[in-house]
Amino acid sequence: MTENGKGQTGVFVAAAAATLLIVVLFSLFTGPKAATSETPDTPQAVQTSNRIEEESFFLYFAEREGRFLTSEERTVSTARDPWQLSQKIIAALIEGPERGSTRTIPAATRLRALYITTPKTAVVDFSREVRGEPKGAAAELLTVYSVVNSLAVNIPEIDAVRILIEGNRAETLSGHIDISEPLTPDMLLVR
């Protein structure tokens, strides 16, 4: 190789090194600025959705005469998460009323599973104890709509509720009210 060829190779290597250095320096000085301008949106969205807040909701229990539902307001600390709030609502229904209302779900009942599907339907799977002792049509109606109203009225992401027993679809709880399809709230039962 000629001396002139060695000089051109050296110039080429020097130019490539200088270009690489410029790219590295450019990315160091502009990279954090670009990342900084994008990152404030992401953490804020995550923090907002996970922030714990006091959430008020209404539970529907049977009135003493057992002909209508009556509401009872409760407050819990929760992230604004429809699934988490749904679980707390069902747990509170199973625990029973705090004031003069009557329980609608037997105390021995367990929530086996709860999930929210599209389009806006909550699927609530209870243990067999939800059937309780033999009860009439009016008591069964109030049990079903205690669950449906408590979820659908309080949680915008839920429009209807499907009730399962031991993981299976059932026609009724105890022979009277059809629960084979998702149900929407019935506020005419509330006094």
Rank of each mutant, 00 (worst) to 15 (best):
T2D: 15
E3A: 14
N4L: 15
G5E: 15
G5Q: 09
K6I: 08
G7C: 02
F12T: 11
A14Q: 01
A16C: 11
A16M: 14
A16V: 12
A16W: 01
A17Y: 01
T19C: 15
V23N: 02
V23D: 11
V24R: 06
V24M: 14
S27P: 03
F29C: 00
F29R: 10
G31Y: 12
P32L: 04
P32A: 07
K33T: 12
T39P: 01
D41M: 11
D41P: 04
V46H: 06
Q47C: 10
Q47I: 10
T48V: 13
T48C: 02
N50Y: 11
E53D: 08
E54P: 05
E54G: 05
S56L: 04
S56K: 15
L59S: 12
L59Y: 11
Y60V: 00
Y60W: 14
F61R: 10
A62F: 08
S71K: 13
E73I: 11
A79K: 03
R80G: 02
W83M: 08
W83G: 09
W83Q: 05
Q84S: 15
S86V: 03
Q87H: 13
I89A: 07
A91M: 11
E95C: 02
G96A: 04
G96K: 06
P97Q: 12
S101E: 06
T102N: 09
T104R: 07
T104W: 03
I105E: 00
P106T: 00
A107D: 00
A107P: 01
A108Q: 07
A108H: 06
T109D: 00
T109P: 07
L111Q: 00
R112E: 09
A113K: 14
Y115R: 14
Y115M: 05
T117A: 15
T118L: 13
P119F: 09
P119W: 06
P119H: 08
A122H: 08
A122T: 02
V123F: 10
F126A: 02
E129W: 01
E129M: 03
G136P: 04
G136T: 09
A137Y: 00
A138Y: 05
E140N: 15
E140S: 00
L141E: 15
L141R: 15
L142H: 11
L142D: 03
T143L: 01
V148K: 01
V148G: 14
N149K: 00
S150Y: 03
S150H: 05
L151I: 14
A152N: 05
V153I: 14
I155Q: 03
A160G: 06
L164A: 04
L164N: 10
I165S: 06
E166C: 12
E166T: 06
N168G: 07
A170Y: 07
A170H: 09
A170R: 14
E171G: 01
T172H: 01
L173H: 07
S174W: 00
H176P: 00
I179L: 00
S180Q: 04
E181V: 09
P182H: 13
P182M: 05
P182A: 14
T184L: 10
P185N: 13
D186I: 12
L189P: 00
L189Q: 03
